[in-house]
Amino acid sequence: MGKKYKKVVVLPCSGIGKVYGALARETAYELVEKVRPGLATLTCLPLLVINDPEAVALVTENPVITIDGCPKDCAKKSVEAVGGRVAKAYEAIRFYKEHKDLKPEGIAEVNDTGRQLAQVAAAEIAPEVDKLAAGEEQ
């Protein structure tokens, strides 16, 4: 078993033009606020873009889960660009593909169905958060 962590960083896409960017954020908020509060933590992705020392330390000293909204993988690449290692990378569309009855809509924020899908996605990601915090998966 590896090192244990008090924080697992969940980093969503910053996109403001696509529904899956909004779904990625909603999923991250669900994890941080409701599903794993106190353990899952967020930082602003743009802070990594400007090399903010606190944000860089957060993603280099703790396990990171990224949730991207499109194949450009901004969240994942931004972590890697500052020397962080992404422990688990998700693309938000995957959750819709696995739950076709929950079609998300909306651009800046998802609709009610999108919120339901984010709850499902957060529940699916939560065990990964636990494993990473326990040092079981590196």
């Binding site: 896409c13 403001i16 990594l48 873009v49 901004c74 690449k77």
Partner: peptide, 11 residues
């Protein structure tokens, strides 16, 4: 027109 800010690095 807009751009996702992290695309300055990832794009």
């Amino acid at each position: 027109v807009t751009i996702c800010l992290p695309l300055f690095i990832a794009g």
